[in-house]
Design a protein around this nucleic acid. Structure first.
Length: 463
RNA sequence: GGCGGCGUGGCCGAGUGGUUAGGCAGGGGCCUGCAAAGCCCCGUACUUGGGUUCGAAUCCCAACGCCGCCUCCA
């Protein structure tokens, strides 16, 4: 049984599945008009972890995440760069998948593009117009939030109090400041699609509700996204579904954001670091470990210091993998490691880790258990209990693998010159010529190697 | 104004009524030719003021500070 915090009820609840053994989940994806930033990295990592965990637990996961390839930001970018909107979307979508690949985020089962679902969006808007929950203004079609009885469910407050705080909008044709655009009328030189209620393009909130329902069907299980999407984006998606009489997501999960110092990282504050940039100079696994070490609903600080901290913690895991020659059990695939032989202390670890992760995806506690197991495995090996040590260490690698973190046991490629120094050093050590051995070690270190002695002689890897 | 979250040891970051979170950094020891890696031990923290309790970082009340959503945002 998987339990997960549900934003609507404000408590941890059992994840009820529409179809036994199958999870249908939707994660709001990026609008592709710029490089992905660290916030995108966090949400993709944590929901990738959730997906992998559900899969590991034997559930069949249909994981849908969209690409918003038409909206105001894309149009603005196209204008700025003097290229076509579709070109902007193509460029940044490529960047997106590059970053996802490097992060080790598995491809969603489906990656719907907004522009491919315009017909269905037009259909939904027509329905909403027929039902009189939508109305036309001079610049588009708007949704009348007052027509949804429980509007404000996700925001956690009634419509009245939301309205009280709403700021004055430029558009005074709207019946309520909270009414949102379903369709924006075509403007010259902007992409548009034909519709019975006038040519134009869809609003963002309509894109997600249509794509999720279209691919996952009515009453799908789980809708995820950052906390900042809870309102108004998710509220508005839900409002449309409710108004159209279609059961929507049964469970809502939101992740905490990335902080820069004491502030949320966001586009509007222009304080974001691009994910692309981070991945150029960092082992992507460090970001995954950093994400795993805090709870998904808490804010996290991503800075050179916290990344470096995670990198050092990671090296402890890799050292374990090297010591036991453990295979890397993660990557692009979601293969369930059913063939893995859980035994002895490894089986015990599996049970305890499952207990934590099944309870609101408590990755920080699970990671703490795994680090405890690293110490225990090393201690067992030091004490000569190879069997137990190996069973435990293998389980650690398998469980990190289940969370998408591959431990690295294979050494770096060693060039001929360095290899020669290594064998010379082994020779010197065999002859107990310590001065020469130390000199050769210094030479290797100067070449950027970390040098360690082992039973089988000098081992080197990149620092 | 409405709603929500947070304040933990040098740093990051869990926990939530009584037993060690974990990682990083630091100190001591073991191991090692010396190192590295690894193992063992150590720091004795919970914004402040009240209260409840045999006992609170954990519950209640108040105060202070910080952050977020209500507007494009993951």
């Amino acid at each position: 049984m998987i339990r997960l915090f549900d934003s609507v009820h404000g408590e941890i609840r059992e994840l009820q599945l529409r179809d036994a053994g199958e999870v249908s989940m939707y994660v709001c994806g990026p609008t592709v008009y710029d490089l992905p930033h660290l916030g995108h990295g966090r949400y993709t990592l944590i929901w990738d972890v959730a997906r992998r965990w559900f899969t590991f637990r034997g559930l069949e996961v249909r994981f849908v995440s969209n690409i918003t390839d038409i909206d105001d930001n894309i149009i603005a970018r196209a204008l700025r760069d003097g290229v076509d909107e579709s070109e902007v979307a193509r460029i940044y979508e490529d960047q997106w998948w590059d970053a996802m690949t490097r992060l080790g985020v598995a491809r969603p089962s489906d990656t719907p593009h907004a522009t491919q679902f315009v017909d269905q969006m037009v259909e939904l808007i027509s329905t909403l117009l027929e039902l009189d929950v939508a109305y036309a203004t001079s610049d588009g079609i708007y949704f009348d939030v007052s027509r949804v009885a429980d509007y404000g469910l996700l925001a956690g407050q009634p419509l009245d109090s939301l309205r009280a705080g709403a700021r004055i909008e430029a558009n005074d044709e709207k019946r309520s400041p909270l009414d949102f655009a379903l369709w924006k009328n075509a403007k010259p030189a902007e992409p548009s699609w034909s519709a019975p209620f006038g040519d134009g393009r869809p609003g963002w909130h309509t894109e997600c509700v249509v794509m999720s329902l279209e691919l996952l069907g009515d009453g799908f299980d789980l809708h995820c996204g950052g906390f900042d999407l809870k309102f108004p984006h998710h509220e508005n998606e839900r409002a449309q579904a409710v108004a159209a009489g279609r059961p929507f997501a049964q469970h809502w999960a939101h992740n905490g954001w990335v902080m820069v110092g004491a502030e949320k990282m966001s586009k509007s504050l222009n304080n974001f670091t691009s994910l692309t940039h981070l991945l150029e100079e960092t082992d992507a696994r460090a970001y995954r470990l950093l994400v795993l070490r805090s709870h998904y609903r808490s804010p996290i600080e991503v800075s050179p210091a916290t990344i470096a901290d995670a990198e050092r913690a990671l090296s402890r895991l890799d050292a374990l993998a090297r010591r036991f020659g453990l295979p890397a059990l993660a990557g692009q695939t979601l293969e369930v490691k059913s063939s893995f032989n859980w035994e002895g202390p490894g089986l015990d670890l599996l049970e305890r880790v499952c207990q934590k992760l099944d309870d609101d995806l408590d990755t920080p506690l699970a990671v703490a258990l795994l680090f405890d197991a690293v110490s225990a495995a090393n201690a067992l090996a030091d004490a000569g209990d190879e069997w137990s040590a190996r069973a435990l260490a293998s389980a650690v690698a398998a469980l990190f693998g289940a969370l998408g973190l591959a431990l690295e046991s294979v050494g770096d490629e060693v060039d001929a010159a360095s290899a020669a120094l290594v064998s010379q050093r082994d020779q010197a050590r065999a002859e107990k010529d310590w001065a020469e051995a130390d000199r050769l070690r210094a030479e290797l270190v100067a070449l950027g190697w970390t040098v360690e002695d082992s039973d089988s002689g000098t081992q080197i890897r990149h620092s």
